[in-house]
């Protein structure tokens, strides 16, 4: 590849994706969307891992990415199950309706 994209761009993209994800988690009301935002944050981290792995010529980052993907898959399974259960009891997936922890 004659012109490789410099590492800066990957990092910048990763930051942007992470920020979007974080904002989504903090600001959105729909639990599914919040969930997808979490996935976005995880994948931004994956992107950074892979980019650095290639930049440094070291496979550790890529190995870690597989771990993250695996954990994320498990997390999605648990999380979606929770959301389904919450919907069944509350007839809503608006996370502002779930405030039983209020002191």
């Amino acid at each position: 590849m004659p012109d490789t994209v410099s590492i800066d761009w990957y990092v910048a993209l990763s930051i942007i994706l992470f920020t979007i994800g974080a904002m989504g988690v903090l600001l959105r009301r729909n639990a599914i969307v919040v969930f997808m935002s979490v996935e976005m944050m995880l994948n931004s981290a994956n992107l950074a891992f892979v980019a650095f792995s290639r930049y440094l010529g070291d496979l550790d980052g890529q190995v870690l990415t597989f771990f993250v993907i695996t954990v994320a898959a498990a997390e999605v399974a648990v999380g979606l199950a929770l959301i389904v259960t919450i919907f069944r009891t509350k007839q809503s997936i608006n996370i502002d309706d779930i405030n039983t922890m209020k002191g």
């Binding site: 988690v25 903090l26 600001l27 919040v34 996370i95 502002d96 779930i98 405030n99 039983t100 922890m101 209020k102 002191g103």
Partner: peptide
């Protein structure tokens, strides 16, 4: 006082 911090909102 401290109770006010516990809103119950996940976000």
């Amino acid at each position: 006082v401290v109770r006010k911090t516990q809103t119950g909102y996940a976000r």
